[in-house]
């Protein structure tokens, strides 16, 4: 699907250094899938396209590789940038840290949508607030 407002697309930063020189693939810590580093739509593959699990390697700045944690990060929720791009909020299972990552073109659409509708499938949903929209 094309973007709603393609005028405000911000150019992505070029990848300056390549981490883990040897490989062109990594193995997902969640589902053990072998994932190629080349991703459609992004130069920074940071989560598994199948189960959306990531690894806690960056500290404050994306790509700094300064986190000592190395814990597994699971997808917690989905948010939208003002330009209409989806971000996955990852939650570290070992230290509780959070990070936001852009989705890639080959990410599992069903897994993404399940996270996105999770608040709406809650039985304690305030229906009165929905009706007043």
């Amino acid at each position: 699907m094309p973007r709603r407002n393609p005028s405000r697309v911000r150019p992505q930063r070029r990848k300056r250094e390549h981490h883990g020189e040897a490989g062109d693939a990594f193995r997902c810590v969640g589902c053990r899938l072998d994932v190629p580093m080349i991703a459609p739509g992004t130069a920074h593959r940071n989560h598994c396209p199948h189960c959306l699990t990531s690894l806690h390697v960056d500290h404050r700045i994306p790509g700094d590789r300064r986190a000592a944690c190395r814990g597994r990060m699971t997808a917690l929720s989905v948010t939208v940038r003002p330009d209409g791009e989806w971000l996955i909020i990852h939650h570290c299972q070992s230290c509780g840290g959070l990070s936001a990552n852009r989705i890639a073109g080959d990410d599992n659409a069903l897994a993404l949508l399940r996270i996105a509708v999770r608040p709406l499938s809650d039985t304690r949903l305030p229906v009165s607030a929905l009706l007043s929209l």
Binding site: V80, W86, A109, L113
Partner: peptide, 10 residues
Amino acid sequence: AVRPLAQPPF
């Protein structure tokens, strides 16, 4: 909660 579903990437 509904904002992602209003702007789906697929």
